[in-house]
Computed example of a mutant assay.
Amino acid sequence: MVRWGIISFLSRIKEKFSRKPLMYSSRICEDCQAAKKFFVAHEISIQIKYIEDKGIREELAAKYGKVLVPTIIIAGKKFIGFEDNEKEIKKRLKID
């Protein structure tokens, strides 16, 4: 239990200072697909982790307490859902 806590803490610090957005996604999630299209359209490179992998699901749950997709992390800021957060994501990425 302590090990996951330390790993989670270090992962959050790494994500906060990472310039590349991270998205926890599912291959069957329509909102995830919309988010991917958004990033491609704006030529933004992202890291995608698929929750179909049990380890990734456990990582998402350990870090953020829930397994909801898409969960998008941009410079340490968490967004759950793309459609409802698109305006804020654009603002965070400085996209008009």
Rank of each mutant, 00 (worst) to 15 (best):
K63D: 14
W4T: 14
S11Y: 10
Y24G: 01
I13N: 08
V67R: 08
K66A: 13
L22Y: 12
R27H: 05
E52S: 15
H42R: 15
M23I: 15
L22A: 12
E83M: 01
R12I: 11
D31T: 12
T71F: 00
I51C: 05
G5T: 04
I72L: 00
I72D: 00
K54G: 02
K20L: 11
K66C: 06
S25N: 07
G55F: 07
F39G: 00
Q47A: 11
L60V: 03
K94S: 14
I44C: 04
A35F: 12
Q47F: 07
E52R: 06
K16M: 13
E83L: 05
I44E: 01
E52H: 13
Q47S: 12
V69D: 04
F79C: 07
D84L: 07
W4S: 13
K20P: 08
C29Q: 03
R3C: 04
F79V: 03
D84F: 02
E88P: 01
I51T: 14
V40T: 15
Q47M: 10
P21M: 01
K37I: 08
N85D: 07
E86D: 03
R3L: 13
K87R: 13
G65Q: 05
D53S: 14
I6V: 15
K36E: 15
T71R: 01
K77C: 01
S25L: 01
I80E: 15
I44Y: 00
K90W: 00
Q33P: 03
K77F: 00
V67W: 04
I51R: 06
N85S: 06
S25M: 01
I28K: 08
L10F: 11
I73D: 10
G5C: 04
S45I: 10
V40F: 05
I7G: 01
F9A: 14
R12P: 10
P70K: 04
S26N: 15
K90F: 05
E88G: 05
R27E: 07
M23K: 11
I28G: 02
K16Q: 13
K91F: 02
G5W: 06
G76H: 14
K14M: 02
E43M: 00
E88H: 00
G81R: 09
F9C: 05
A41V: 04
S11E: 13
E52C: 06
Y24S: 03
F38C: 10
K66P: 02
K91Q: 10
M1T: 12
G5P: 02
K90C: 14
I48C: 04
G65H: 02
Y50L: 12
G76D: 12
S18W: 03
G81M: 08
K14F: 02
E43Q: 02
K16W: 09
K77W: 03
I95D: 11
A34N: 13
K36T: 13
I95K: 14
K37P: 03
K54C: 00
L93F: 00
C29T: 02
I56M: 00
F79R: 09
C29F: 03
A61V: 05
A75D: 14
F17E: 09
G65T: 00
